[in-house]
Design a protein around this nucleic acid. Structure first.
Length: 593
RNA sequence: GGUCUCGUAGCUCAGCUGGAUAGAGCAACAGCCUUCUAAGCUGUCGGUCAUGGGUUCGAAUCCCGUCGAGAUCACCA
């Protein structure tokens, strides 16, 4: 049962009984702020025209009526124009029973909508870095949240496995390498390939410098550097499916995928579909033809195809090169079209950094102009801000990139050190110690990144993120582990906490029940705004509240069996909700730590 | 220059479909471990919500201007 709907119906009935039929006046009900007495608050300002009385008098009148006529309303108080209603504790007991009986609490009924979430989308010439971590965590979490909202979700990864950048790694491996492989070097495949990408850049820069000392301009030198010419030649050979180049490309990409899989697994993300750009880069050309026929696009004398978006406040955009080859936009048009067609999608969400805001603005506009407004309106660019480091911004060209694997390892390592220092690992087997360190280290990382509004540029301070106090993943994990420990001890002691409890709720317990009931709305809000941070904030709030409660009330040692039963049930429910919330964030929740 | 995003406590962030005295955590300070996990709990300190206008009974929230930060405007992806 939806409490706010229930209340607003009760309010409408009462207000109409007092003042006659309403004509579209807003009924505003919100949670009562914790510094005031009450559970829910009616804002009476919008009703003043109707009551023709002061805010205080109106609130008092409605309050009296409701206390007398709505059995669930136990008490009320009025502060300024705000009517605070306190609900009967039987009402909360019933809500709790409802939640406890619902095995799928938080899972919305199926919506019948199919949503594709594309995220990760790495290049195959170098390992993943901190920016990818934000992307992966966001994409995965948003997908899980959408599932919880009842949608059918397809997680997709579009791998950029072709282009000049991959040829650079391949060329450097051939020219400067000694035939090493992940197996022979002991390096993770993506790191090995990334190493040669850097190697290419070193030689390339050296050659530019050389040509410039020989008198060439910088631009000329960049074009004429022999390694660059060779890389371009390699790309041509790749496109012609030259067996040698193609074979090497397959081998090296294979190494990279093995490496990526390790990272994805560590992050706990997965995909339903993997697309490869080498297989989709030719898509979209027929759409361009169609656009030309419809007069949406135009051809320039050099044979290139453009769209003029100046009337929409944007620029002119290239869609097909003079030589007939496609560009990024062409491909994206093609893949979007195909995805909607093939999967009968209702929504398509791209998790891509905000440096591509313009690209997606244009993409949506073009799709609309091509005559598919129903698709255009259902494409969402889930744009996220850059992750900055204390020293400056992350740019792959500068040396300050934080490698994803290194970062994960560092988090786990630090978690282990801190756990050991606090004596949390005493008596653990090596295996258990590893499990705790991994869970805690990754929980810290994931929560730290997901708790920030995606749109915002965020600051990632590795040292600070490893502070496990306060609003952090480990705090939430810790709370869950504590609750599980209580429940285990209760079972060991043979305490029976099944069946309905008849004890009365205390105010703190009602607060917990109230917070529990808010879980579905938090999940819905997070889904609507593509903001895992909303779920994060909710789970933190619940954990914090429980910690305070746990501190003030003994649960196992409570002497009254009914009260103890009730408290145990409450604790069990809190742990269930924490667990399902954390799952939506992709964060593992330990049974003990 | 055009377009878009952001600006809230010393720091990192919530709050934004308009509602009460703007919230957390960190840092600082003061307490709390014979107690179900102290990775915890309680308290103190800390804010002209960048700034100036406007709309409103009411604005951190909506609109306009200004300042500041970032992204983008490629025959790259």
């Amino acid at each position: 049962m939806n409490i706010e709907n229930f209340l607003s119906e009760a309010v409408i009935r009462s207000v109409e009984a007092l003042y006659g039929q309403l004509e579209g006046e807003q009924i505003q009900i919100q949670k009562t702020r914790k510094e005031f007495e009450g559970d829910y608050t009616l804002v009476t300002f919008p009703l003043l025209k109707r009551s023709r009385k002061s805010p205080e008098a109106t609130a008092a009148e409605i309050g009296e009526y409701m206390a007398a006529n709505v059995p669930e309303v136990k008490a009320f108080n009025v502060i300024k124009g705000f009517l605070n209603l306190t609900l009967d504790s039987n009402f909360w007991a019933a809500r709790f029973a409802e939640i406890a009986a619902d095995a799928d609490f938080g899972q919305a009924p199926t919506s019948g909508r199919t949503v594709m979430v594309e995220y990760s989308s790495p290049n195959t010439n170098k390992p993943l870095h901190l920016g990818h971590i934000r992307n992966n965590l966001l994409g995965y979490s948003v997908a899980e949240i959408l599932k919880a909202n009842g949608h059918k979700v397809i997680k997709a990864n579009l791998v950029n496995d072709r282009g000049i950048h991959i040829c650079k790694s391949m060329l450097a491996w051939k020219l400067y390498g000694n035939g090493e492989t992940p197996a022979s070097s002991g390096m993770k495949g993506d790191h090995l390939v990334g190493k040669y990408y850097v190697e290419f850049d070193k030689h390339y820069k050296a050659e530019i410098k050389e040509l410039m000392t020989a008198g060439q301009s910088e631009d000329d030198a960049k074009k004429n550097a022999p390694v660059m010419l060779q890389a371009q030649e390699m790309l041509r050979r790749w496109e012609a499916r030259d067996p040698e180049v193609y074979g090497l490309w397959e081998t090296m990409n294979g190494w990279v995928y093995e490496g990526f899989d390790v990272t994805y697994k560590a992050l706990g993300v997965d995909f339903d579909k993997i697309y490869y750009e080498s297989q989709t880069y030719l898509l979209g050309k027929s759409l361009v033809e169609e656009g030309l026929r419809k007069g949406v696009f135009y051809r320039r004398p050099d044979n290139s195809v453009w769209i003029d978006l100046t009337a929409d406040g944007l620029d002119e955009k290239l869609l097909l090169r003079g030589d007939g080859t496609s560009v990024y936009m062409t491909q994206d048009l093609g893949t979007a079209y195909r995805r909607f067609e093939d999967n009968k999608l209702d929504d398509l969400i791209y998790v891509v950094g905000n440096e591509q805001n313009y690209h997606f603005q244009v993409l949506k506009l073009i799709i609309k102009k091509l005559g598919f407004p129903e698709w255009s309106d259902h494409i969402t660019h889930l744009s996220y801000g850059m992750v900055e480091l204390p020293e400056g911004k992350m740019k792959s060209r500068e040396g300050t990139v934080v490698d994803a694997d290194d970062l994960i390892e560092g988090m786990v390592q630090t978690a282990r050190e801190m756990s050991a220092e606090l004596g949390k690992l005493d008596g653990c087997t090596e295996e258990e110690a590893n499990a705790v360190s991994t869970t805690v280290g990754l929980g810290a990382l994931k929560y730290f990144i997901l708790k920030v509004d995606p749109r915002k540029t965020m600051l990632f301070d590795p040292r600070e993120s490893i502070d496990f106090n306060g609003n952090t993943g480990p705090f939430i994990q810790y709370t869950h582990a504590r609750i599980r420990s209580i429940l285990r001890k209760a079972v060991e002691a043979g305490i029976d906490f099944g069946g309905a409890a008849s004890a009365e709720y205390l105010p703190e317990e009602i607060e917990l029940v109230k917070t529990l009931t808010e879980y579905p709305s938090a999940v819905a809000a997070a889904g609507e705004n593509f903001a895992p941070s909303v779920v994060g904030a909710y789970v933190y709030e619940l954990a914090k509240q429980f910690n305070g409660y746990y501190h003030d009330h003994s649960i196992l040692k409570e002497e009254n069996a009914e009260v103890r039963r009730m408290r145990l049930q409450l604790a069990g429910q809190v742990s269930r909700v924490i667990r399902s919330g954390m799952k939506l964030l992709g964060i593992e929740v330990p049974e003990r730590m």
